[in-house]
Amino acid sequence: MSQKVNLNELEPQQILQFKAQINKELDNLQGSFRALKLAQMKYKECHENVQRVNVSPNQEIMVPLTASLYLPGKIKDNDKFLIDVGTGYYVEKSSEEAVKFFDGRLSKLNQDSTKLTQLIREKLQLVQRVDEVLREKLAVQQKEIEKQHAK
């Protein structure tokens, strides 16, 4: 972490501000993490579906024409998949290539999610430390107030 500010030198209010900022970052990171998990699930589903279609030829399926209209169909060629590679482009791949494609994406997502988990853990630890300092500060302040009252 690049911040070299000594927490002990800050006023409680500043510490609270600092904490709010970290919590905001943490929220962002956790949002990204959820999005990542969702993407992982989607790719896993695709991966499984490719293998399921590829086990035997001439499988029957219901083809969705709209969200509420289906047509019975047969899979004519179970070794030709069209994969969305992003920005509206679809690429034709054999089942082997498709599986490789999804494996690649999944392993990349796994790497990212490990990194992200590490980052989130660090931020959580930081919040904990900030909380500790804050509590100490408040305790000291409380004692001083009591001392003054005792006088």
Binding site: G86, T87, G88, Y89, Y90, V91, K93
Partner: peptide, 23 residues
């Protein structure tokens, strides 16, 4: 980033691989 990923994907393709654009 998204376009870069697409480009990387395109770079790996065989010459005769078919590409479709969703319109």
């Amino acid at each position: 980033q998204e376009n870069k990923i697409v480009k990387e994907e395109f770079d790996k393709l065989e010459d005769d691989t078919k590409i479709y654009k969703q319109i």
